[in-house]
């Protein structure tokens, strides 16, 4: 049995401890907001937080996640009210949208570490791939979210 705390809820699961957290989220818990893109930790579509730190769930065995607080896109807010989600809506960021859960989770984590990131900080932190090329809008949305969070 693996114990997991996800989005504030406790779970006990009968899964192989080597299973990547991604597939436990998606197939065992039906938290499908976290996406499979590459399976090798390259694209970041599966980004979730372990104690606030961004990790690539496709390359994180579920056993490793059991001692942390896991937050997925579904746990960010109940009503899309997180400033990063609001900024994403304001900047009309998503196109196909498949990578955006991971992008948002990476951005939230960046803003936790750095309330006013520069463009260079954003370049360094945001390594997630977006095949639709929404990068310029992601950048604008991160700046907007930083401003919103600063005003709050």
């Amino acid at each position: 049995m693996i114990r997991l705390r996800i989005n504030g809820q406790d779970h006990e699961l009968d899964v192989d401890p080597a299973t990547p957290l991604l597939w436990v989220l998606r197939d065992n818990l039906n938290l499908t907001g976290t996406k499979y893109g590459c399976g090798i930790g390259q694209c970041g579509a599966c980004t979730v937080h372990l104690n606030g730190q961004p990790v690539r769930a496709c390359s994180t065995p579920v056993s490793q996640a059991s001692s942390f607080e896991v937050v997925t896109i579904e746990g960010l807010s109940k009503d899309r009210s997180h400033p990063v989600q609001q900024a994403w809506i304001a900047e009309d960021v998503p196109q196909c949208g498949y990578c955006q859960s991971g992008q948002i989770m990476a951005a939230v984590s960046l803003l936790k570490r750095n309330a006013r990131p520069s463009d260079a900080d954003i370049d360094a932190a945001m390594t997630n791939i977006c095949r639709c090329g929404t990068y310029t809008r992601i950048r604008a949305a991160i700046h907007k979210a930083a401003a919103m969070m600063g005003d709050a």
Binding site: L31, T32, G33, Q85, I89, P94, G97, Y98
Partner: peptide, 20 residues
């Protein structure tokens, strides 16, 4: 603004792989 944006910022948009 795109109508599909809200669903694409909270993980609720259903892609083929999300069908259950």
């Amino acid at each position: 603004p795109r109508l599909d944006v809200p669903e694409k910022v909270d993980g609720s948009a259903v892609f083929g792989m999300d069908v259950r």
